[in-house]
Design a protein around this nucleic acid. Sequence first.
DNA 1: CGATCCATTGAGGGCGATCAAAAACCGTGG
DNA 2: CCACGGTTTTTGATCGCCCTCAATGGATCG
Lengths: 245, 245
Amino acid sequence: MTATPSPLVLMLRKLETHAVLDAADRVAMLALPYTLRTYEPSSYLVREGDAPEQCAVLLSGFAYRQKLTGAGMRQIVSLHIPGEPLDFQHLFLDVADHNVQTLTRAEVATIPRTALRELARTRASIGNAIFINTLVEASIFREWILNIGRRDARSRLAHFLCEFAIRLDMQGLTGGEGYELPMSQEQLGDALGLTAVHVNRTIKSLEIDGLITRNRRRISFPQWDALRELADFSSRYLHLAQQRL
Amino acid sequence: MTATPSPLVLMLRKLETHAVLDAADRVAMLALPYTLRTYEPSSYLVREGDAPEQCAVLLSGFAYRQKLTGAGMRQIVSLHIPGEPLDFQHLFLDVADHNVQTLTRAEVATIPRTALRELARTRASIGNAIFINTLVEASIFREWILNIGRRDARSRLAHFLCEFAIRLDMQGLTGGEGYELPMSQEQLGDALGLTAVHVNRTIKSLEIDGLITRNRRRISFPQWDALRELADFSSRYLHLAQQRL
DNA sequence: CGATCCATTGAGGGCGATCAAAAACCGTGG
DNA sequence: CCACGGTTTTTGATCGCCCTCAATGGATCG
């Protein structure tokens, strides 16, 4: 009956968490040309300075955006989970201003930028959906700034963990309680503006207080509400259609 | 001969720094309905939680975006100069996720959101220009994260001063050398993730090193290249049409 | 000329960085 | 199954950047 489902349905689902699309929109979007590719951990999908011609969508695995200072310090500026488009940020810009890298092994669908732009132009609702997606991303950037600028290490880490939990949940990627954190403490530090050593101590401190439990990189949340309060976390900035928290 | 120029030409000029518009686009944009209003310093233009119905454009004066932690700490997440649209970030979102406040007395043109959305829908090039504008803003957010997360106070402040200089210059707002910083050291601290006291000491340290000179809030740059190097500043992330630096 | 806001300066403390090393974990191959 | 090199996590000790608290000085404006 049905053909094998296009891997782009993942992106579709993501876009539909913030925008309304009709059947024709869905068909048009799933008709986009794409190529599949698998990347090893730490592969570059976009390099600062590149002229982006493709638009990558993450199908499985995790990725992040990253910038480097002249002195070589790394700052991760966002984290991406399966289903999220990675290159809308460059859809209309000629030169990439940051790097995009895989965190884990990842499957990616690559769509020609021109096809996507054409689709956005001809179907206004899809154009809107793409726009909304980048607006929500911008909102997450703002909260990230607040988190790094004004919260201490414990709250900062807690906030990060909360955001990741909610976003995984939104995409239906949580298997019951907790999740596997797909990054090293070094990378966690780069995301939070801390050192790996201090991340380690901060995680342990949360663990000792019973706010999280850990097994390798698997984290769960026996006291979600307490963690959320410490994190000063409100999901408003994620612009969930239905505010679940 | 010519009618009094619409105040919206300022926004038009801003959009045209990143996108190409034709004569018809310009006419259509200048035909947008708007109302003028003047705000006192520290007035709220948008409050977190609001349902934004208007889109404000800054005609004169300065403004900033800001978020607060539960504990009441403030983080400024962006700064805006005359000509910049302030509400594209909320054009397609139902609830504001941050506050927008004037820094100085400011004149603002307010455009109904529906009119702007309609214009973006019917004229693709204008829709693109608006999209590009938000993409560039997102890029500035990312650099802001890097700045706060990974640079020490001196470089951080220097980077902020460089960015402001370049952006003023882009909009043709620099009268010769240096500029008047439209904010208190307290506000600078809130922008940089520092305390006002430390901002004071950091400014003085830049001054002692001869990297800036000050008179009240007027700042000039006798050693621009040295400051730029300390700041680790590259203008790539601003996506200037012609890279001037 | 007081009131208020802002800039400045000092003293002291703490959070997170730095440096260094050990321990745990991982995939690989003998 | 164990030996291994490489990565990641963990822990300790010390340092320093920036914060906190507090007070003074300057500027502006009724």
